[in-house]
């Protein structure tokens, strides 16, 4: 199945849902499902995706789907996968089914990390996708462990003594890689063929897999709805969101900007960074740029080591 055939496949996630104009959730789900040929079962953490797509008595999902709570998409899915395996052994199920859990950054980086780490350690075969919009957007933009340095949120606002989030975000993709699961990746909707390849590799992995997808939020990042893909692209071009994969422990950076853009090019497109761009806060931009450079250097080294091994 090539990319063109994939995007022309019958939709398993349909229109009519209540996601905001410009929200990448629909783009992510449609493209992920299109990349998979087998039957699929989906579990969703509480969050924008769950709330906007399943307002009873409607559903946007044409695949079996479950939401049980916020912090437990991974443990709920552990139970589903165990059920699948045992019922297959007992002859009650006789076809191949693939399993995907979706969670936002709140449900993945923060409240759901324990359940996710447990599932990775136990080795259940399913793909976990984080749609990372860098704060608690479903409840109206509160700071999360994924919120970047300097971004304004309602719980880490700009004030006289604090300037938005004063800490760097945690590197969840590296945390996933540290579990030594077969496949880990970062991806972007600005590069759909790359996302498709990653979903295919993840689904084919005999064990847990994880893809962290950059997911701009029109409403709370503060930009015009038609800029979602453009901003995603800028995140990659500034190396704010490198797209790379860790396949059986081997790192590969899937795209290296020939001329990386300065981080200001990304920051200036969004209202959440507006205070950071003021003259007196220039030091914050520098601090972020230095952090991005250091992280990129580390990633290059990890790729280099992978080539040696």
């Amino acid at each position: 199945m090539n990319f063109k055939e994939m995007v022309e496949k019958k939709e398993r996630f349909v229109s009519g849902h209540g996601a905001c104009a410009g929200c990448p959730i629909g783009i992510i789900v449609r493209n992920v499902l299109a990349a998979i040929e087998d039957d699929v079962v989906v579990a969703c953490a509480t969050g924008c995706m769950e709330v906007t797509t399943t307002i009873y008595p409607y559903t946007a999902w044409k695949v079996p789907w479950i939401h049980s709570a916020f912090e437990n998409a991974a443990s709920t899915m552990s139970g589903i996968v165990a059920a699948y395996e045992v019922l297959k052994e007992k002859g009650k199920i006789n076809r191949d089914i693939r399993f995907i859990a979706f969670g936002g950054d709140g449900g993945t980086y923060d409240i759901g990390l324990q359940a996710l780490s447990g599932a990775w350690e136990r080795g259940h075969r399913f793909l976990y996708i984080c749609y990372d919009n860098e704060a608690y957007m479903n409840t109206g933009n509160q700071r999360s462990g994924a919120t970047p340095y300097g971004a304004e949120t309602t719980t880490a606002p700009y004030g006289r003594v604090e300037a938005g989030k004063m800490e760097f975000r945690k590197n969840l993709t590296q945390i996933a890689a540290a579990h030594n699961i077969p496949y880990v990746a970062q991806a972007s909707i600005a590069n759909l063929p790359d996302l498709h390849n990653k979903v295919k590799k993840a689904i084919a992995s005999d064990g847990p897999s994880f893809i962290n997808i950059f997911s701009p939020c029109v409403l709370n990042w503060g930009y015009a709805p038609h800029k979602t893909v453009e901003i995603s692209k800028l995140a990659v071009e500034t190396r704010f969101w490198p797209i790379y994969e860790v396949e059986n422990g081997k790192y590969r950076i899937n795209y290296k900007p020939a001329k990386p853009l300065p981080i200001e090019e990304f920051l200036k497109t969004q209202r959440r960074f507006r205070y950071m761009l003021k003259e007196e806060n220039k030091w914050m931009v520098e601090k972020l740029q230095n952090h991005i450079n250091e992280e990129w250097e580390k990633l290059l080294k990890l790729e280099e080591i992978s080539k040696e091994g």
Partner: peptide, 9 residues
């Protein structure tokens, strides 16, 4: 949570 997933499956 795992019991919930398994039972729903």
């Amino acid at each position: 949570s795992a019991c919930i997933g398994a039972c729903a499956a």
